[in-house]
Write a protein that binds this DNA or RNA. Structure first.
Lengths: 231, 231
DNA sequence: CTCGGGTGTAAACGCATGCTGACTTATCGA
DNA sequence: TCGATAAGTCAGCATGCGTTTACACCCGAG
């Protein structure tokens, strides 16, 4: 190892970030080449830019098809910095996965339950797939790096997300009546992932060009069927 | 191009195939290394073995992560024969995709409708995912090679499958009451793909180890909700 | 027998990839 | 002001990839 080798998630802990970067959060940015012309010399911003670019590339193109040079170019950063800050390509992927895991955590409630609200948010995620970064992070959960570490994180993230969703829908480890909610919540997640996949990666019609008006109703039905308790 | 460059699907048109190959069809064969110790000198059998091995590799590991040497080793065949018979790795992928497209075609009825029967078959496909070759071919539909040709075939296959399923469920291009069935059929396909993905690629619990008893009911509900006309 | 084409083999080529180590440049406290 | 250290740059290495080329083998037709 070189020096200290800090493979951190650099998530909610950073505060003084993004200098000279106008597109910080939820701007569309359909083109892959933003983050350019940064006024360097800011390690935190550099790491952030790398993770941002990497998440997009990994999610859309997959792990193997993405090259570190592409990521570095997208982030407007020298290639060697990937190895400096994340040790390896796989370390960067792991950081992306951890970040997605954290974001997913903050977006799903820990314990209580408001099934209709949850359903609405799930649908929103799927529908907004082509734009923004939020739905792409879902596709990241389907991408395998082939490495034990990163894929373990991926599996645990999906299982944790499942438990969160099932809990929000009323699952309880003690109540045998809610035992199947775990599996049902996971089927809902599988549906989400499948739809996002078809919409973005494969661009299959008609679902790829379907809007909120077309998708809200059937998706809501499916999620309601899976997550609402039959009283 | 070298000589004639026949990139054929070699599907239903071959009859005198598989000499000295005991495991021809639906044997489990969870290990990746069958097809070995072939008694060479049979181009048809060689092509068949290559496609068989390639489909498994492409479906499980993805296009980029699969190497031609792996495929050749799985098929018990020299690497150069891939280029001889399929011109390139991408040509082999295209042949795999075409074969999947054809098999999917023969398995879905062309016009009539027996929704319950269709649903039962869809569920069967998903549940049997870890074993056999049938469900793996579904994952192939999610894999992108990055090439225009193969990915076009993939998109068209998915769209054709959508139309088949919607038609079987009662969709008619003239009847406006059935207009949304197209999208609903595609959501059903997305659900299938998502579940198979979670079961095989990510091995996420509890869906990965769920059996027919656990999956039949909720999956049937979802497919029925999406495909059955509300009278 | 011999010839020729179909089949399989072995070795290597060119290239792109991930990664490394030595170097330069900016930043900031003493 | 100045040097120590962090931040970034550059050229190149080693490897694995897809592909190609040249060669050996088998077998039926003439």
């Amino acid at each position: 190892m070189l020096q200290r080798a800090r493979v951190c998630v650099e998530g909610q802990s950073m505060s003084t970030q993004t200098p000279a970067s106008t597109t910080t959060d939820s701007t569309p940015a359909a083109d892959a080449g933003d983050d350019l012309q940064r006024s360097g010399r800011d390690a935190t911003a550099t790491r952030h830019a790398l993770v941002r670019a990497a998440r997009r590339r990994f999610a859309t193109d997959g792990y193997r098809a993405t090259t570190v040079r592409q990521i570095a170019a997208d982030a407007g950063v020298n290639v060697a910095l990937i190895n400096r800050y994340f040790v390896s390509k796989e370390g960067l992927f792991e950081a992306c996965m951890l970040r997605t895991s954290d974001e997913l955590d903050t977006q799903t409630p820990p314990r209580p339950a408001d099934v209709e609200g949850i359903i609405a948010r799930l649908v929103e995620h799927v529908v907004n797939a082509p734009d923004g970064d939020d739905p792409l992070q879902l596709l990241l959960l389907l991408r395998s790096s082939g490495d034990e570490n990163a894929d373990g994180i991926r599996r645990r993230t999906l299982e944790h997300f499942t438990k969160r969703l099932a809990t929000a829908a009323g699952w309880s480890p003690t109540d045998p009546d809610t035992a199947d909610l775990m599996l049902r919540a996971q089927l809902a997640i599988a549906t989400m992932l499948g739809v996002v996949m078809l919409r973005t990666s494969a661009a299959v019609q008609p679902v790829a060009s379907a809007g909120s008006d077309d998708l809200d109703a059937p998706l809501g039905e499916v999620f309601r069927l899976l997550l609402s308790r039959p009283v």
